[in-house]
């Protein structure tokens, strides 16, 4: 059996099992002329290994939990960013800018949201960049191409998204001519941009998660990442609180604006605000739970035997 197919079959097994038996099992599969029954037998063996773990490497299991927690923080933060972009989109209109200038609480809450978002981004980079470098270094030292290719997905997704936006602004809009802001064509194109952005974001985060999951990275980096992740959680909490204050202050100071149709796609401002608050609250909960689990796993990490 060819090396590539053998590797694919080995990947069916849990990580701890692969760490222990992967190399020798792959050697056996490469050596043997595999029938369809053999492939089915490997699949059943893998299912058995998942259902009844045969390798109980405590360190490996704890490491997997810590990695899962760190990746869950990344996903929670991505959800938070999507909500934040929604808030930024809603408040870019002049009415909201003036409200922020006019009222102290609206302005202060808005700037707190911005500062919190920047802090969260910096913390994500602080915890994430060393993990990405370690994953790349390990993959390159093993001569693997899959991990570097997976890390190419985010810049490629971004390029594809920017390309799509340029296509719309440079080709599509000049061709179709001017349209009312909320005409059905404009709404459809706007929704397509939102869809393209969400697709690019999901694909990028999924690719990074996959790359990190497929590489052997030491516990030290995941343990360290939990601290910037704590900062991410705190920043998200602050942003969420500021967002709530922003909405309440806007309702008190500019009730007409809060009760008007200043939301995204001319929806009710209050409903758009509420949807953003709910999405941010969900993402904050995801991050908080992931952190609790991550620190719990880190506390149970057995000492290295060496």
């Amino acid at each position: 059996m060819k090396e590539k197919n053998a590797r694919r079959l080995v990947r069916l097994y849990p990580r701890a099992w692969r760490e222990r038996y992967g190399a020798e099992f792959a050697a056996l599969l490469e050596e043997r002329r595999m029938s369809v029954l053999d492939v089915a037998d490997v699949a059943l063996g893998a299912a058995d290994a998942w259902l009844r773990p045969q390798v109980t490497d405590g360190r490996m299991l704890v490491l997997e939990r810590m990695r899962g927690s760190v990746l869950a923080v990344l996903w929670g933060w991505a959800l938070f960013v999507v909500a934040g972009i929604g808030f930024q989109k809603m408040t870019e209109y002049e009415d909201f800018v003036q409200a922020a200038h006019r009222d102290f609480w609206v302005g202060a809450a808005f700037h707190t949201v911005v500062v919190g978002a920047v802090v969260a981004l910096a913390a994500i980079l602080l915890g994430g960049v060393p993990i990405v470098f370690a994953a790349l270094r390990n993959a390159l030292s093993e001569g693997r191409k899959d991990v570097p290719l997976l890390f190419c997905v985010p810049p490629l997704s971004l390029a594809a998204f920017v390309g799509y936006v340029l296509l719309l602004t440079r080709v599509v809009y000049p061709t179709v001519g001017p349209h009312a802001v909320h005409s059905s064509l404009n709404v459809a194109l706007f929704l397509s941009v939102v869809g393209a952005f969400l697709l690019a974001a999901v694909v990028s985060i999924a690719a990074v998660s996959r790359a990190v999951s497929r590489t052997a990275i030491g516990e030290r980096l995941f343990r360290f990442a939990l601290y910037p992740a704590t900062l991410v959680a705190l920043a998200m909490g602050v942003v969420l609180a500021a967002l709530v204050v922003w909405g309440i202050a806007l309702k008190v100071q500019s009730p007409a604006l809060f009760g008007g149709d200043g939301g995204i796609l001319a929806t009710h401002t209050a409903y758009t605000w509420l949807a953003i608050v709910v999405e941010m609250a969900i993402s904050a909960c995801v991050v908080a739970v992931a952190l609790i689990k991550g620190f719990a796993a880190a506390r149970t990490m057995p000492r290295a035997s060496s």
Partner: peptide, 28 residues
């Protein structure tokens, strides 16, 4: 089958009934 064989090997090793012989070879 290879999956059945290694399922048995993993269980036997876990129970201390067999042990791997140290070697540099991929085939243990």
């Amino acid at each position: 089958g290879p999956g059945t064989l290694y399922g048995a090997i993993a269980r036997l090793e876990r129970r201390g009934m067999i042990e791997v012989v140290p070697t540099e070879d991929r085939r243990k």
